[in-house]
């Protein structure tokens, strides 16, 4: 590859970057991620936190904390807990990714469970959050 060819390639790839910009910028980058966690923490009221914590720590008795959610407020608190764990776990290695379609997300979360050795509860709560 000559320098001229490399330059041409660079220009075309830069054009791709402009197309990407025109497609918008995800709101789930580092800064908003930290902000989201703060919001989630603030929104996690004491009863909801208790419910989420109880559900999250009951994997021995209840196989899925998500399955234990029966009331709407539990749903909401589990989703908030899922967002919290999403940022805590996924952000350990890379920028928090955007949401994908549910069946695709289920595969990616399973892959990350193996790759990043996240816990069973984390996997379920993150999948719940990422598919809502």
């Amino acid at each position: 590859m000559t320098l001229r060819g490399g330059l041409l390639a660079g220009i075309l790839i830069a054009a791709t970057a402009l197309l990407a910009i025109s497609g918008g910028v995800t709101a789930q980058d580092g800064g908003s991620a930290a902000h989201s966690v703060n919001v989630a923490n603030a929104a996690l009221t004491a009863p909801a936190a208790k419910a989420a914590s109880a559900a999250a720590n009951s994997n021995a008795a209840v196989k899925s904390p998500v399955a234990a959610a029966a009331k709407p407020q539990d749903d909401e608190s589990l989703t908030i807990e899922g967002e919290k764990r999403f940022h805590a776990n996924c952000g350990r290695c890379h920028q928090a990714p955007q949401k994908f379609p549910p069946r695709m997300m289920a595969t990616i979360v399973r892959h990350m469970r193996v790759r990043a050795t996240i816990t069973d509860d984390d996997m379920r709560l993150i999948l719940r959050y990422m598919t809502q």
Binding site: T26, P102, I108
Partner: peptide, 27 residues
């Protein structure tokens, strides 16, 4: 994969999806 589209997809799959009911697809 624009965020707007991703959000639209997510919004279409609102509320009552339980993780256990999701059948994963090859990626």
């Amino acid at each position: 994969q624009s965020p707007a589209q991703a959000d639209a997809q997510s919004n279409a799959q609102t509320d009552a999806i339980e993780p256990e009911s999701i059948s994963p697809v090859p990626v």
